[in-house]
């Protein structure tokens, strides 16, 4: 195995007196799916917000080993993390541009590249062909991802009018359109029915296989986690209580005690 793509070291995030994430360290490798699991309130989303720059951790270091050199994420602004470090994300409660069309959502995601191609839109304003080419490429990339997530037929619809499952897939496609090296998915299977959930698994495995990027996902749905993850990190009250391959996690007594072992817990399956 190659070196880690993402190194999280001793990250701590406090809100008032509450430790949402407490001295957490783990790594995620390229071309692997790393799952972060844990009961509600375990600090998973906070961790995500630290990695993607929406929160700044009080303590710790988050390194992304980008092909062009390592970057310290906790020092970057949220938007530069996507732009420079190539970290893309989705949200627990879907955040699409609801009144824009599906295609427009995917083209907005390619903002950085299009801005460069159009000299901050000036070239486009003057109608130069350089921008037309860049736009055609952007549409091509969008078309590719529309095909992948099966939304080509909906390309010109308003994103907000799509059914829930479609919106989830569109959000993933949109994140992929930024051209990331690490894709962070916040509960991508939440609210999906079993068939959609199975489709999602295929999509994620596909992304890993074809794009060779790392995936980091937070998930409650154990069927998704156990089926597709290469590596699992278990959190409880902001601390890491276990880490390892799915089979090892299933057998870990600490995990069973904290999370899987409760007989009347929903997720116990």
């Amino acid at each position: 195995m190659s070196e880690a793509l993402l190194d999280v070291e001793h990250v701590t995030m406090r809100f008032g007196g509450l430790f949402a994430v407490n001295d957490l360290s783990f790594s995620a490798r390229p071309q692997e799916i790393t799952a972060v699991i844990g009961p509600n309130g375990a600090g998973k989303t906070t961790l995500f917000n630290c990695i993607t720059g929406f929160y700044k951790p009080q303590v710790g270091r988050i390194t992304l080993n980008h092909p062009s050199g390592p970057l310290l994420l906790e020092r970057l602004d949220d938007y530069t993390i996507t732009r420079k470090a190539g970290v893309a994300r989705t949200f627990q409660n879907i955040r699409l541009f609801a009144r824009m069309s599906v295609l427009e959502n995917l083209i907005v995601a390619q903002h950085t590249r299009l801005m460069a191609a159009s000299a901050f839109s000036l070239a486009g304003l003057l109608g130069l062909s350089r921008y037309a080419q860049a736009e055609a490429q952007a549409v091509e990339r969008a078309r590719h991802w529309l095909d992948k997530v099966g939304l080509t037929a909906f390309a010109d619809e308003e994103a907000g009018s799509l059914p829930y499952g479609h919106q989830r897939r569109l959000e993933i496609a949109r994140a992929m359109c930024t051209g990331p090296v690490l894709l962070c998915l916040d509960e991508p299977a939440a609210g999906l029915n079993p068939r959609e959930s199975a489709e999602l698994n295929r999509l994620l495995l596909d992304i890993r296989a074809e794009n060779g990027i790392g995936l980091l996902l937070i998930e409650h749905d154990m069927s998704v986690v156990m089926e597709i993850s290469d590596h699992i990190v278990v959190l409880d009250y902001g601390r890491k209580i276990a880490e390892g391959a799915p089979t090892a996690i299933k057998a870990d007594p600490a995990v069973i005690r904290a999370y899987l072992g409760e007989p009347d817990e929903e997720e116990a399956g």
């Binding site: 929406f54 938007y79 541009f97």
Partner: peptide, 29 residues
């Protein structure tokens, strides 16, 4: 009409819809 088809104009509209999503896509609000 023209700027709506250009990255800046699209970013304006995206910002109107959801600023946080914009930030997650590398757009500097």
């Amino acid at each position: 009409l023209r700027i709506r088809r250009l990255p800046v104009g699209r970013a304006w509209e995206a910002l109107r819809e959801d600023e946080i999503a914009c930030r997650s896509l590398g757009i500097n609000p």
